[in-house]
Each structure stands twice: as C-alpha cells, then as structure tokens.
C-alpha cells in the first residue's frame, strides 16, 4: 500500500509559486477574519459560544450524520439492484439536507415574530417536499434501470 500523502509535491515551478501565493494570501485573509472577530466579538462568553458552535457542527457532522449515512448505505445498497443505487444515494443526500432545513423551518415557525415569517403550513410544506424527494428518487431509479447495461 502506497503511503498516504495529503500534501503532494508541486508538478512545476509555476505551480509551486502559485501555491505559495495561495498560502500567503489565504493566511492573510484568515488573519483578517480572526482579528475582526477579536475586535467585534469582545465578550469572552460570546467567544466561547462561537467556539462551541464551531466544534458542535463538526461533531454532529462527523460523528452522527456521516456514520448514519454510511450505515444506511452498507445496509441498503447491497440489497438493491445496482441501477437503483445512484438514485438512492442522491435521495439520502437530499434527505439529510431536508432534515437540516426542516429544523430551521420548524424552529422558525415556532419562534416567529410576526405572521409573515414562515407563513406556510410547516407540516404540509415538509410533506410536499418529502413527496418531491420520493418522486425524484423513483424517477432516478427508473432512469437508472432504463439505461442499457454495458
């Protein structure tokens, strides 16, 4: 097995120079962001809250969402015809996105400050989006099955 290499070597001098420009430029942008945060978010309690949210997003994604997706893939995909798998994978991605948007939609409706915020019936909206998702997956499965096997 070849050694895993996350920082590959440049393939030309021009590319090497461009990479240095990107590193230095990126570091400058990053430093400006950190300085801006330090000057505009002065209170320690707010900073701690920001750090918690930064870490929380990574934990929820890496330790919950992706393992769940992998688990569903390992359990479901081998049991269905290969032509259905791409549509089901896409459907799982769409389901994850719908889940995140649903959190915002439900919370936005629950805390709405006036009737023009999330004015729609949230249950009906999510049901409709779910139907769109299922129809999309079914169409994808049909198209996958219709493709001539090679």
């Amino acid at each position: 097995m070849r050694e895993y290499d996350a920082t590959p070597a440049s393939t030309s001098r021009g590319q090497a120079a461009l990479r240095w420009v990107l590193w230095i430029g990126g570091a400058a942008l990053l430093a400006f962001g950190v300085l801006t945060a330090l000057t505009t978010v002065p209170s320690t309690s707010q900073r701690i809250n920001v750090l918690l949210w930064l870490a929380g997003g990574v934990v929820v994604h890496d330790a919950v969402l992706v393992p769940l997706a992998l688990l569903v893939g390992v359990v479901v995909l081998p049991r269905v015809p290969p032509s259905w798998r791409p549509a089901l994978r896409g459907g799982l991605l769409a389901l994850a996105v719908l889940g995140i948007v649903a959190v915002a939609l439900v919370a936005g409706a629950a805390t709405r400050a006036n009737p023009s915020v999330v004015p729609q019936d949230v249950g009906a909206a999510l049901a409709l989006a779910g139907i769109v998702l299922v129809v999309g997956v079914l169409v994808g499965m049909f198209l996958g099955g219709a493709r001539r096997p090679r």
Binding site: Q15, L22, A27, A28, L29, L30, A31, F32, G33
Partner: peptide, 15 residues
C-alpha cells in the same frame, strides 16, 4: 473571512 482564507490555503495545499 476565516472561511475564504482557509479555503484559499486548502486550494494551495491540494492544487
């Protein structure tokens, strides 16, 4: 700025 800065660094690393 943090996102865009670390994105530019990342593109530099993986170019």
């Amino acid at each position: 700025w943090v996102v865009i800065g670390s994105l530019v660094i990342h593109v530099g690393v993986k170019l």
